[in-house]
Design a protein around this nucleic acid. Structure first.
Lengths: 115, 115
DNA sequence: CACACAATTCGATGATACTGGAATTATGGA
DNA sequence: TCCATAATTCCAGTATCATCGAATTGTGTG
């Protein structure tokens, strides 16, 4: 991933509404979610949400699938992987960052996100 | 790390100049670098750089140490760790993300800022 | 003190981003 | 066809960001 692509991806996440939307989509998993549901869940006007979803699309962080008159959005982990790889390679000390050090026995852990 | 803190950190990196500066500081390692050197290296006017360094300070991504009339800036990996941890926990599928991906060997060349 | 230098702050400008009401497009159903 | 619904686009207002010349602050040196 190039520097400019990293900026693009980071920009996609560097805003409260968008990060919330992305987080929601991640939580929604493979089923994804539709704008109406997201808007209600996060209490964001539909048009504002649409604006941010477009931003997430531009950042290539989400995908959309049209079925009839509804559109399902899903988090796209490919870009997220590339971003984390970039940050790990370019923005870490090379030894310390969280990626390599799984937080020594730090309550091994509540969520299914573990390594 | 809270959502809003994550946004703060992401905002710090979501800009070409700032990401470049941070990358430079990471490459500089423990020695850090001074504004004049960074400005020359990246070809950014001193005041513009100062503006972005302030942004990185706000995002808690860098630290500064005053010695005489020069100031040494260093990347602060604490915040970076926290950010990566946040992204891994909240923005990954739980299985795929870069955490498991092989970490490309990081060049330990710390002399990147010299003129 | 006078000067050079490191770095920041000030101030002004242009560009971009965020928000939300209103209108629009498109699909499904009665 | 007519209406409801899903989602987007249009548009305007406001706010924030990015840039850089000029002025400022602070420190070391002759």
């Amino acid at each position: 991933m190039e520097l400019s692509n990293a900026v693009q991806a980071l920009t996609g996440l560097a805003q409260l509404s968008r990060l919330s939307v992305f987080k929601t989509l991640v939580a929604a998993g493979p089923d994804g979610a539709q704008p109406t549901a997201i808007a209600e869940s996060l209490d964001i006007p539909a048009n504002t949400l649409s604006f941010h979803l477009k931003g997430l699309m531009t950042a290539k962080l989400v995908t959309q699938e049209k079925r009839g008159r509804m559109i399902t959005y899903r988090a796209d982990f490919t870009q997220m992987n590339a971003l984390l790889e970039f940050l790990t390679a370019n923005c870490c000390g090379g030894k310390g960052c969280a990626v390599t050090a799984p937080l020594r026995a730090h309550r091994a852990n509540t969520r299914a996100v573990a390594s």
